[in-house]
Design a protein around this nucleic acid. Structure first.
Lengths: 239, 239
DNA sequence: GTGTCCTATTGGCTAGGCCACTGATCCAGT
DNA sequence: ACTGGATCAGTGGCCTAGCCAATAGGACAC
């Protein structure tokens, strides 16, 4: 039959396209369901029997999906108790790194590599919505600092907004992978006296460059900003 | 109350020791069996029915084990054909990306982000051994091109050597994560007429900067090199 | 030779069931 | 009142049995 025709584009026949198996779709549905309902670590999934029925698959298939999610580190299935979400998510690399104790310099380097590029991309690709999100984060950080806070949340949102503005799935994922590691260094950095204000100024430079659509300036501003953060980490190393 | 007492051990009370589920043991057995018999990519595992019988488990359980191995990227299960070993082994993100078809521009961007930084780090940290490896790769590529080849292997080794010379575990792992994706673009790039020679020259610049210990020059050379590669990818996109 | 069809083989998925584990509850003993 | 053990409902673990769907390769017609 002509079933083949729809699988034969002009392209070089990249990789034997794999059929989606049911368990993959199920796993996908579950993860999106988790995201939609804003479930966090520790919360429970419905019982297998119920979940299987609700998704319209057999328990065996659901079980495969759970195995997949378990391997990836999204959930932990506990015999006799239930299926609970684990916080880590991507975990694999993170644990490996964290196991080696003080990898902070490496985290900074990686951030530098990824975010500098992302800033440049953001300058080229940001939409008005992206810009709005960036500015909102900036304002939140400013308000928090004015009120005597450290602006941690705004800081995080800012970098998240810039990452999103880069419009690169792969880079986005990589940032997500080391996201948790970054968060740890971030808190340390902003705990330094006077640091929040400096950080805010750095963010302004980045935001301006992105708004102006100047990739080079955005990259440089981001690089400088991350370098500043790294000072803190090094200080801690000395201590 | 004394409810607290159970939360206050002298020791950290490690982690809720998780029972090994059968599928884990099965997956373990399979991987060791693979290793023992020296099976390589492309070779087949026995049929599910037979394998299940031989391992003394049900097909359902074996299927779970295969899902786990599939998620990790050890095997590929093909409906109607069988279960074959895949060379890779990291896979998770790769498939997610590949599923979205033409992500080549994103791959290039990510390469640019990671490798540019790695080149700079390599310029600062390379040992004599690193330098030797880089030069060896360069020579291999040159010889291959002289002989009319495309220098694919040398190219790959070169980038691997630079990555190693960066001495950053995290960045190294991220490169490994997208390694296969890069390989695909590499082969395409070097298939362009005249491209291998240009590529070789680009590599020389990078190697020289690293040898000279000049991070900025190394980063720039790497960036230019990757930009050149990206041209090819874009050409392909047009076609 | 070439293309088509058939079929054995293999994985995909379901249904239904029993067993094992967990946690909460209840109850007897102290 | 408190402790400890027994019970029980709910949950996942695993199995058996079976049918469906995809693949590859050979038989066959041309």
């Amino acid at each position: 039959m002509s079933e083949l025709s729809r699988d034969l584009p002009g392209r070089p026949l990249p990789t034997r396209l794999s059929r989606t198996r049911l368990y993959e779709q199920v796993a996908e549905q579950i993860t999106t369901w988790i995201a939609d309902n804003g479930l966090t670590a520790g919360e429970r999934l419905p019982p297998e029997r119920e979940l299987a029925a609700r998704l319209g698959v057999s328990r065996a298939t659901l079980s495969q999906a759970l195995v997949a999610l378990e391997v990836v580190g999204v959930v932990a299935v506990r015999h006799g108790d239930g299926t609970v979400l684990t916080g880590k998510g991507t975990g694999a690399i993170i644990d490996a790194i964290r196991a080696h104790a003080d990898r902070i310099p490496e985290i900074i380097e990686t951030r530098d590599a990824l975010e500098t590029k992302l800033a440049a991309l953001a300058a080229q690709r940001r939409t008005d919505e992206d810009l709005a999100a960036i500015n909102a984060a900036l304002e939140e950080m400013e308000r928090d600092i004015e009120a005597g806070g450290r602006g941690v949340e705004g800081d995080e949102k800012f970098h998240g907004a810039v990452t999103a503005a880069g419009h690169s799935d792969l880079l986005y994922r990589m940032m997500a992978t080391i996201g948790e590691l970054i968060r740890e260094t971030r808190i340390e950095s902003l705990s330094q006296p006077g640091r929040p204000r400096d950080s805010l100024a750095g963010h302004r430079r980045i935001a301006d460059a992105i708004a102006a659509g100047d990739p080079a300036a955005a990259a440089e501003a981001m690089h400088d900003h991350i370098t500043m953060v790294s000072d803190v980490a090094l200080i801690r190393d000395d201590g």
